[in-house]
Computed example of a mutant assay.
Amino acid sequence: MNTTTITIRTATPADAPALLAIYAPYITDTAVSFEYDVPSVEEFADRIRGTLKKYPYLVAEVNGQIVGYCYVGILHGRQAYDWSVETSIYINQNCKRMGIGRKLHDALEQALSAMGILNLYACIAFPIGKDPYLTEDSVHFHEYLGYTHTAHFHKCGYKFNRWYDIVWMEKTIGEHKEKQPEVKAFSEIEETLNL
C-alpha cells in the first residue's frame, strides 16, 4: 500500500466490522490485548459510541481501506484525573511500519491537546523473555512517540498459559497550571481539527 494517501477521520459505529477485523487477531493470536474473547460487532460498535461521548476515536484509511485505529479512555473514574487519558492504538498487522501508527497518534494528540488533556498513558503488555505471542515493539513505538517509562508490573497478566508483565508509559502534551481549564468534549473541538 502507498502510505502517501493515509487519511485520518473520526470513527463511526458503522466502522465496527472493519475495526474488529483489525483487532480480533490481537486477541486470538497475540498477548498484545489481554482480552480472551473477540467481542461481537454490536459490542464493538457500542464501545465506539461510548468513547465518542467524550473522547476521540480515530481511524486511518489508505486508499479508502481502514488500516488502523486509535482512541482513548479515562485513566481513572475520579474527577481529579480528567486531564489524563489512557491511549490505545491498533494497526492492521499487514500494514505495520508504514507510518500509519505515527500519523494516527499525531492526529490523536492534536485532538487531545485541543480538548485540554495534559497526560497520555499507555498500558502495554510486556514479554518475560522471548515469547511467541508478544514482542517489545509497542514499547519501542511509544518511545519513538516520546513516551517515557513510569512503571513496570510483574506477572500481572495471564494468557496462553503463560504470565506477562505490563509497563506503563507516559507522555505530557500540555502545561500544568494552578487554575487548570476544564477539559472539553471531543465533539466541542472536532470541527477545528485538520483531519
Rank of each mutant, 00 (worst) to 15 (best):
N2I: 09
T3G: 07
I6S: 06
I6H: 01
I6Q: 03
I8Y: 05
I8M: 07
R9C: 09
T10H: 08
T12H: 13
A14K: 00
D15T: 06
P17W: 14
P17V: 13
L20T: 08
Y23K: 00
Y26Q: 04
D29I: 02
D29Y: 03
V32S: 05
V32R: 05
V32K: 09
V32D: 05
V32M: 11
F34D: 12
Y36H: 08
D37C: 12
V38G: 01
S40N: 11
E42Y: 01
E43P: 09
A45W: 02
A45N: 04
R47F: 00
R47H: 02
R49I: 13
G50Q: 15
G50K: 10
L52A: 02
K54W: 14
K54M: 14
K54A: 14
Y57F: 15
V59P: 00
A60Y: 09
A60M: 02
Q65I: 15
I66Y: 10
C70L: 07
Y71N: 01
V72G: 07
G73N: 01
I74T: 04
L75M: 14
L75A: 09
H76D: 10
G77T: 07
Q79P: 12
D82L: 02
D82K: 14
W83D: 15
S84N: 01
S84C: 06
V85Q: 07
S88D: 04
I91Q: 11
I91M: 01
N92H: 15
C95A: 15
C95T: 00
M98N: 12
M98K: 13
R102E: 07
R102D: 00
H105D: 02
D106W: 03
A107C: 11
Q110L: 11
Q110M: 14
A111N: 05
L112T: 06
L120D: 07
Y121N: 00
Y121G: 05
A122H: 03
A122S: 02
A122Y: 07
I124G: 00
G129A: 04
K130C: 01
K130R: 14
D131Y: 03
P132E: 08
P132S: 03
L134T: 10
T135N: 07
S138A: 00
S138V: 02
V139P: 03
V139N: 10
V139M: 12
H140N: 10
H140R: 08
H142M: 03
E143L: 15
Y144P: 02
L145I: 00
G146A: 12
G146E: 04
G146Y: 04
T148C: 00
H149V: 13
H149D: 02
A151H: 05
H152S: 13
H152F: 05
F153Y: 11
K155Y: 09
Y158E: 02
F160H: 00
N161W: 08
W163V: 06
Y164T: 13
I166P: 12
K171I: 08
K171E: 12
T172P: 07
I173W: 00
I173P: 11
E178P: 03
K179D: 15
Q180L: 02
P181M: 07
K184D: 05
K184A: 04
A185M: 11
A185G: 09
S187W: 11
E188L: 14
E188Q: 15
E190D: 08
L193D: 10
L195S: 03
